[in-house]
Structures are given as structure tokens and as C-alpha cells.
Computed example of a mutant assay.
Amino acid sequence: MPTGGGTDFGAMVAQGLQRLQSAQDTADNLAVEAATGRLTDVHDYMIAATQAGLATSLAVSVRNRALEAFNEIMRMQA
């Protein structure tokens, strides 16, 4: 349930995952262009691949922290 006009957590997570997918798609498309010889600047691919890798690492870190928090809350109730 949203409070105070702010964006709810679920919407923020969904938006983050959409951005992650977009970064992965961009890197994949540029990799195909590089493999077929249609990419004029290899730096574009390297930048996109690095951004996608960092976004994936961030998503995994956020997931791990959320699981740790959930497990801690569950231990508190026992």
C-alpha cells in the first residue's frame, strides 16, 4: 500500500528489474553487432557490457541483503 504519495517498494523493484533487462539487452545487441562486424566503436560494447555487469551485481547484492533481513526478522519471532 503506497503511503504519503511516494512510490511503493514493489514498483521500485519492478522498475529496477526493467532497467536491468534493458541494460542486458543493449549489451547483447552490441555484442551481436561486434561479432558480425557491424559495430563501428568497440568501446560502446565495452561500456554497455560493464554497465550490465554492474547492474546485475547490484541486483544480486540487493536480493542478498533482502534475504538476510527477512531471515533476521524470522529469527526474531522465534
Rank of each mutant, 00 (worst) to 15 (best):
M1C: 12
P2K: 00
T3F: 04
G5A: 08
G5E: 15
G6I: 02
D8I: 04
F9H: 07
G10F: 11
G10K: 03
A11N: 01
A11E: 15
M12F: 02
M12W: 12
A14T: 15
Q15T: 04
Q15A: 14
G16C: 02
Q18G: 03
Q18N: 12
R19I: 02
L20K: 00
L20Q: 13
Q21T: 07
Q21F: 03
S22C: 03
S22V: 00
A23R: 01
Q24Y: 09
D25F: 05
T26Q: 06
A27M: 09
D28P: 00
D28G: 04
N29Q: 13
N29I: 01
L30M: 10
L30D: 13
E33N: 13
A34W: 06
A35M: 12
T36I: 01
G37H: 08
G37A: 10
L39E: 07
T40P: 00
D41I: 02
D41Q: 07
H43N: 11
D44V: 01
Y45P: 02
Y45V: 01
M46I: 00
M46H: 10
I47F: 09
A48P: 00
A49Y: 09
A49L: 07
T50L: 03
T50H: 00
A52Y: 08
A52V: 08
G53N: 12
T56L: 05
L58Q: 11
V60L: 07
V60M: 05
V60F: 13
V60S: 04
S61V: 07
S61N: 14
V62P: 05
R63G: 04
R63A: 15
L67Q: 14
L67C: 08
L67Y: 15
L67H: 11
E68I: 03
E68R: 05
A69E: 15
F70I: 04
N71R: 09
N71K: 07
N71V: 00
E72Y: 11
M74V: 08
M74R: 09
R75P: 01
M76R: 12
Q77V: 05
Q77R: 15
